[in-house]
Simulated scan of single mutants.
Amino acid sequence: MAAVDGACQVLIDSGVRSGADLAAARALGASAAMIGRPYLYGLMAGGEQGVERAIEVLGAEYTRTLQLLGARTTDELTA
């Protein structure tokens, strides 16, 4: 984030396996994160329903991580 100094959005595209990873990326300033493997694991395990479930799990983990950090919203996350 320091390298771009707010000149563009930053996306993380590697290593995201859990909602906690998503929270860490957002806390460090990423605008969004790609979720390739969780998506593909869900797809392989259960097709469209598997993908939906994988996204539900990531969302639940993200929410739990925010709660554990004492943050009520994403905007409250900081490095």
Rank of each mutant, 00 (worst) to 15 (best):
A27K: 09
L66S: 07
S31C: 11
G6K: 00
R26D: 12
D21C: 08
M34H: 14
A3T: 12
V4T: 13
T65W: 11
E56Q: 09
A3D: 13
V10F: 02
T73S: 15
V4I: 13
I35K: 03
A33S: 05
I55L: 13
Q9E: 14
T63Y: 03
G6H: 00
A54H: 08
T63K: 11
G50Y: 00
L28P: 01
R17P: 12
I55A: 07
R26M: 15
L58V: 02
L28A: 08
L69G: 13
D13T: 08
G15H: 09
E48L: 07
D13I: 06
A32G: 05
Q49T: 01
R37A: 01
D5A: 12
A7P: 00
L77D: 11
Y41H: 09
I55R: 02
V51D: 03
Q9L: 12
D75Y: 05
L58Y: 00
G19I: 14
S18L: 08
A23Y: 07
T78D: 13
I35V: 13
A7E: 04
A79E: 12
A3K: 11
A33I: 01
P38Q: 01
L69V: 10
A7M: 04
A7V: 02
T73M: 12
R53N: 07
G29F: 03
I12H: 08
Q67T: 14
V10Y: 01
Q67F: 09
G29V: 02
P38A: 02
S18R: 12
Y39V: 07
G59Y: 04
L66W: 05
G59L: 02
L77I: 12
G6E: 00
A54E: 04
V57Q: 08
A24R: 15
G19L: 15
R53P: 02
V16D: 04
A60Y: 13
L69P: 08
Q67K: 12
M34R: 11
R37L: 01
A71L: 07
A32F: 10
L58I: 03
S31D: 11
E76G: 05
G36Q: 01
G50R: 01
T74N: 14
G70V: 09
E56M: 04
E76P: 06
V16F: 03
V16H: 05
G6V: 00
A54F: 09
S31T: 14
V51L: 04
T78I: 10
V51P: 06
R53K: 12
V16I: 15
V51H: 03
P38D: 01
L77N: 10
S14G: 14
A30G: 04
V57R: 10
C8I: 06
L22N: 07
A23K: 09
A7L: 05
R53E: 07
Y62Q: 02
V10G: 01
G47S: 00
E56A: 10
G59Q: 03
V16W: 03
A54R: 05
P38N: 02
E56P: 02
M34L: 15
S18H: 07
P38H: 03
L68P: 05
C8R: 06
G15E: 06
S31H: 14
A2I: 04
R26S: 13
D13K: 06
D21S: 07
D13F: 08
E76H: 08
Y41Q: 04
A79N: 11
I35Y: 03
